[in-house]
């Protein structure tokens, strides 16, 4: 039989760890299916922005895309839960929970009516604060701090709950905005310092560890349903294995970024008093707990997180 050819689009460069992990997925899939399923990857946003490619996945113009969970908020509000500060106790706990089938089911099928489902998650790092001048030790130090956020309501709420002044802007503008003083701070994982050169203008990086927003691999639901059970299993297995391969690759990347930022860019890394931040975000956490759209997932994650 003719091999089934499918297409995956994402918007990271081919040097990014997630691209390598998606290549793992492709190779594992083609290996398991003995070439019956083929995957073509378009990196670098060649097929468009995250939202554009999600919409192409809805209509089956592409079959797969890897996007940030925050880009899925507009399609299913449950994904906004990942913008809740301190949802996970630690990165270890986060990885453990994200791999549990019960958690996956709670999120991945919520978009089936929109024409796509989740397949697996990839670690996209821990989000921390970084500033040009200000030193942040407790959440009092956040007062009036103009902090870049992604242009979304939940990101705005997140920074407000931490005590800062949110300034929505696109990621590409952050460097010059920091330089010219339009913003005082931004928040992201360590690679923003090096890959996007933010470390040239922001010299202080604080491990606030306020959020972990996963990348999600999504797939067109019709294509998935039309596959045989065996083919579906190949996809699930290939995805799961690539997720496992991705974690150490990501850790390595963060370690390298930190070293380059420290040694070549002169960025200082600080520990902070996390408890003061955790205290200040409680009202926001409660709103996620009460919200109909996120309550079930919230409770599930809390249950899974208790067994220490």
């Amino acid at each position: 039989a003719q091999p089934k050819e499918m297409v995956l689009g994402h918007n990271q460069p081919t040097t990014h760890p997630i691209h390598e992990s998606l290549v793992d997925f492709k190779e594992l899939l083609e290996e398991k299916s003995n070439g019956k399923l083929e995957l073509k990857i378009y990196a670098n946003g060649q097929l468009g922005s995250e939202r554009e490619v999600i919409e192409m996945t809805q209509t089956n113009a592409v079959q797969f895309t890897k996007v940030s969970a925050s880009a899925l908020e507009g399609f299913s509000e449950s994904y906004s839960l990942f913008s809740m500060p301190y949802l996970f106790k630690s990165q270890e706990k986060y990885r453990e929970i994200m791999k549990k089938p019960v958690i996956q089911e709670a999120f991945y099928n919520t978009t089936a009516d929109n024409g796509f489902i989740g397949i697996t998650y990839y670690d996209a790092g821990v989000r921390n604060m970084y500033t040009k001048d200000r030193i942040i030790k407790t959440n009092d130090d956040m007062h009036g701090l103009k902090t870049r956020v992604q242009p979304s309501k939940t990101s705005v709420q997140l920074i407000e709950s931490l005590g800062g002044t949110p300034t929505p802007m696109s990621f590409g503008e952050v460097y010059t905005a920091l330089q010219s003083g339009i913003i005082d701070a931004a928040e992201n994982n360590e690679s923003a310092l090096t890959d996007n050169k933010h470390g040239e203008v922001a010299k202080h990086y604080f491990y606030t560890e306020h959020a972990m927003v996963p990348d999600i691999l999504i797939m067109n639901v019709d294509t998935y349903n039309e596959l045989s059970e065996e083919e579906q299993t190949w996809i699930k297995e290939a995805a799961e294995e690539s997720t496992a391969l991705h974690e150490p690759r990501w850790d390595q990347k963060m370690k390298e970024s930190k070293e380059i930022a420290e040694e070549e860019m002169g960025v200082t890394f600080y520990e902070v008093d996390k408890s003061s931040f955790m205290e200040s975000v409680k009202p926001l956490q409660e709103s996620f707990q009460k919200n109909e759209a996120t309550r079930e997932q919230y409770n599930l994650i809390m249950e899974e997180g208790q067994d220490e």
Binding site: G48, S49, R51, E52, E55, M56, T59, A61
Partner: peptide
């Protein structure tokens, strides 16, 4: 549909 989407986005 893809063309229509792209005309807006």
């Amino acid at each position: 549909i893809t063309a229509a989407q792209r005309m807006v986005t």
